[in-house]
Design a protein around this nucleic acid. Structure first.
Lengths: 384, 384
DNA sequence: CTATTAAACTCGTCCCACGAGCATAAACTG
DNA sequence: CAGTTTATGCTCGTGGGACGAGTTTAATAG
């Protein structure tokens, strides 16, 4: 990376960051929020146009005054390939600087063997590389498992062993950004979803076990190697229970289908996700009691995390939404009861997540963060 | 705050930040780490000299070549008043941009009544204001309690009720930065102590209960209102036990003198800190067993936090150091046993904190962060 | 004393943010 | 419909400051 002249592209970088964070923003609005003079705004947009980073389209007029323009990603501008790997399928999209998703794809796995799946992804990357050439700058991948330095460490739902994910971009020279799906959906919520604008947000999602992330100004606390956010493996539960993760008393074991089955005195369900949905549909007393216990464990755990992190807002996703809905009162009691007294006056709201394609959007967002840095812009300009 | 010209004082700000983070750094070293050309280095230091922000003293020569200079805070440069309020005393120091502490003071409280103590602090602030005039830019205050927007919410050791701390700077127009002492000592450790250089660090300190903070690149995760870091109030403990904080099953209740007393079937000690030291001095079987239980709760709790945050390093302070030392083996087992399998290959090190005046230094560091921002520099220059 | 080395200084160049003044495109107004 | 109001965009002169090439300086090594 060549040394970039200090201050060069500084304002351009700020403008592009605004654009990714608020797609569809007008040029005048950018100038206002960045406190740019109209002269600077003219200049910086002209420069960004010249280097094929943005285009402008007339904005619908909003009252008096000369109408402004909407900033859009340039049709020959840089793009990111976002991938979302799930248990039985994967999806992808090409993402532009204004955060819009193009060429969405959805494919079911024919085989779930890691090599086969990764090979399919690699072919997809190569194809995008063919189609977009140098416009494709980065590949971002959401995975339902613990990620550490672009390696998959463990993936309970996929049932894969440790694995190097960089094979996906091998040979293309494209940088890869792999991340946990729960973390990435948290990023999406914190930027454009239910936690938009929050300084500190906590995102939690139940599928099999519970995952999540702490977000500070929209940036996930990923830890030393990117494995942060494994809230399911904090010892909120019964120490006599061993968790497949290797630890004991994990919260994970108290809040998903496995916990429900245990309360209902049944064996470990094959598919804890489907099993949870099943139990939620039941109306009998035993099922309700089991759900209540799980919801209580959920609420008090969240309260503990609120005590620790003091978030502005908590977003919950996956099964946490129907679980809470099935026992709102229990949730409220467990949540508020677990808070330190001074939080109870106005407990931070626990909101359902709103973005269905959260992991994909979050993956895209983190990749776009890279593209809008000064060095990345300078590299893009130099290469043209 | 006037709009500051974009990019103005950018490099100057970077240089000053370097100076606060590595006191005693040479001009040549700054230029290298910031990748400044020698021309820019000459220019920026000249400018900083002109506005009384730095001075240079000849550096001891280190081999061949023209000798460089050490950057020092200018004798007429801006300063911060750092205050560290403790249970039975308070201390203060004037801190300059190179992080050196001047005019250290140490006073015991004559009365512990909040109004009296705060009044003494206020008088001290006024005195510093007299002495330093406009050079004094900010007051930073470390408090052993939960802080929220410069209000003290609860302080178990001080036994104070809710309180507005801004009375301390009232009438002076000086900005106040109040923070929890454990959080601030974490800042100090992450900048110049045992966790120096860590991207993600976790700091935990046991006095009465356990406090701490998560630090990302030396910046504490303070949460929505600054009350983050109350790790003692996560439900790692027995849910049947109510905590004075209002919640149940708090970790706090498992790792300090109160826990030891419970294990030893004694009542709540008046001074849990002194009580812990007492028990640590005992060599009888009961005492050892009680300590072992507490150390085990400490180790497995830390493991849970490592699972959640994936820090590079954990620093422990206060009674956590002698407690662990009293049962190293138990600690290691509880800690490593509580980690997710993939962390066990190289568990993040748990290091004793090294800075005795951590809260004071951390308070100073956060205040200096403010002083070295571009707007603050511009304001300083404009005012002269 | 001379060569070597690392760092500082000088100066021309260029990028770009800003502000003042002017131009423009819409919506109101009578 | 013509004039007014309003928000925005454009032009251009100014100036700060980062950079790099070339030069100078102050130390050590031999």
């Amino acid at each position: 990376m060549n040394p970039v002249r200090r201050g060069q592209w500084q304002t351009a970088s700020d403008v592009l960051t605004q654009l990714t964070r608020q797609p569809g923003i007008t040029r005048a609005a950018v100038a206002r929020t960045l406190r740019l003079s109209t002269g600077s705004a003219t200049e910086v947009t002209a420069r960004l146009r010249d280097v094929h980073l943005v285009t402008e389209v007339p904005a619908p007029s909003q009252g008096r005054g000369r109408p402004t323009t909407l900033l859009r990603a340039h049709p020959q501008g840089p793009v990111v390939l976002a991938l979302d790997l799930r248990q039985s399928s994967w999806r992808s999209a090409i993402v532009t600087l204004d955060g819009s998703l193009q060429d969405p794809e959805y494919r079911r796995h024919r085989s779930r063997r890691p090599q086969v799946v990764l090979n399919n992804l690699r072919r997809h990357v190569e194809q995008a590389r063919q189609q977009y050439g140098d416009r494709l700058r980065m590949v971002s991948l959401a995975v339902p498992g613990t990620i550490r330095d672009n390696h998959l460490m463990q993936a309970p739902t996929l049932e894969w062993a440790e694995l190097d994910l960089e094979t996906v971009t091998e040979g293309t020279g494209l940088p890869l950004l792999a991340g946990n799906d729960a973390t990435l959906s948290g990023v999406a919520e914190a930027r454009t979803g239910a936690a938009a604008g929050a300084g500190t947000a906590l995102h939690l999602i139940i599928e099999v076990g519970i995952g999540g992330t702490l977000l500070i100004d929209g940036v996930p606390a990923q830890g030393a190697s990117g494995a942060g956010g494994e809230y399911g493996h904090m010892p909120f539960g019964d120490r006599s229970r061993a968790c497949p993760c290797g630890a004991r008393g994990c919260w994970d074991l108290e809040i998903d289908g496995r916990a429900l089955a245990r309360h209902l005195k049944q064996g470990r369900p094959d598919d804890p996700y489907a099993y949870t949905e099943e139990v939620l549909r039941r109306t009998d007393r035993n099922a309700r009691a089991a759900v209540t216990k799980v919801v209580s464990a959920l609420g008090s755990g969240i309260a503990g995390l609120v005590n620790a992190h003091d978030p502005d807002v908590i977003t919950i996703g996956g099964l946490a939404i129907p679980l809470r809905a099935a026992a709102e009162r229990t949730f409220k009691e467990a949540y508020e009861g677990g808070l330190m007294t001074f939080h109870r006056g106005s407990p931070p709201p626990v909101l359902p997540a709103t973005l269905p394609d959260g992991p994909l959007r979050g993956a895209a967002a983190l990749a776009l963060d890279q593209l809008t840095t000064e060095p990345a812009i300078a590299a893009w300009v130099a290469q043209r």
